[in-house]
Design a protein around this nucleic acid. Structure first.
Lengths: 147, 147
DNA sequence: TATTGTTATACTCTATAACTATA
DNA sequence: TATAGTTATAGAGTATAACAATA
């Protein structure tokens, strides 16, 4: 079996859940990068656009916290999304320090297309799992994060 | 609940298994980096040393394939392990193009200590899961990789 | 003083092409 | 010509410090 062969080759590494997580994540992300490229999106800009469309008007600091990335690293991502006309930074009355991030109609439309492609991608890379198993995987991952 | 709050904040992102995998992996790896630092090991050098100890005599190309990293990127990792006296590149009779990678006694001893720390680390970061759940997670991840 | 967004910088990881020495 | 190891380089992700504008 391929499984046993891999276990022999990787030896003890195969026993670490962290290693298994890393390998699967890199498999999935490698595929996702290809899927998003035609949309001119990277993984992080897709994630950012998804959150902005879902929570229009949030600030960069809020978005950075949600995605767990540094504010400073978010700047170029936001620049890219705004440069492509997919989001806008609108002034907030009362406090001129921050901007509200809102998607444009083009941004919403682009995300709709990209989202469909990402759904296909997920169906493909996780096709070895049943619906029940996918739900279980999601539950286990959420449980680890919530600890 | 924290779970529901997070779901609201991340919106649709929370529905992607790939995103959940990425977040958990980065959580786990962030912790592991700290755990390995006192041993002068990075994640990849720990992985490499683990495989070399488990399969003494393998070549760099074999190791690169096992870890799924480019041969070129493995060079500095091997240099580091050899520079610290944890492995040796020994000549192979019959074909002078490649070297057999073998651990030194120091390398084996270091790995033994690091391994214990990594076991503790895994117990800690996955403490939210039962033994059965950890086994199930491992099984699901292996299934995805084997597809 | 504290906060938001920003710039600059550096370090890691990863991917590719090209080189050398050996076969 | 093909392969093993190597070098150089560039891209992307990530982390930190410091700054200007605003509160």
């Amino acid at each position: 079996m391929t499984d046993e062969t891999e276990t022999v080759r990787e030896g003890e590494l195969a026993d670490y859940l962290g290693y298994a997580l890393k390998r699967v994540t890199s498999l999935v992300q490698g595929d996702l990068v290809q899927v998003l490229a035609p949309f001119q999106l990277r993984i992080t800009s897709f994630s950012a656009l998804t959150v902005i469309v879902g929570r229009p008007g949030l600030t960069q600091t809020e978005l950075a916290e949600t995605l767990s990335i540094e504010r400073s690293n978010l700047v170029q991502i936001i620049d890219g999304l705004a440069g492509n006309g997919w989001i806008e930074r609108t002034a907030v009355a009362g406090d001129r320090r921050y901007y509200a991030l809102v998607p444009t109609a083009e941004g919403v439309a682009l995300l709709e297309s990209a989202r469909a492609a990402v759904r296909d991608h997920e169906a493909r890379v996780f096709c070895a799992l049943t619906v029940r198993e996918k739900a279980e995987l999601g539950r286990l991952l959420a449980k680890i994060r919530a600890r």
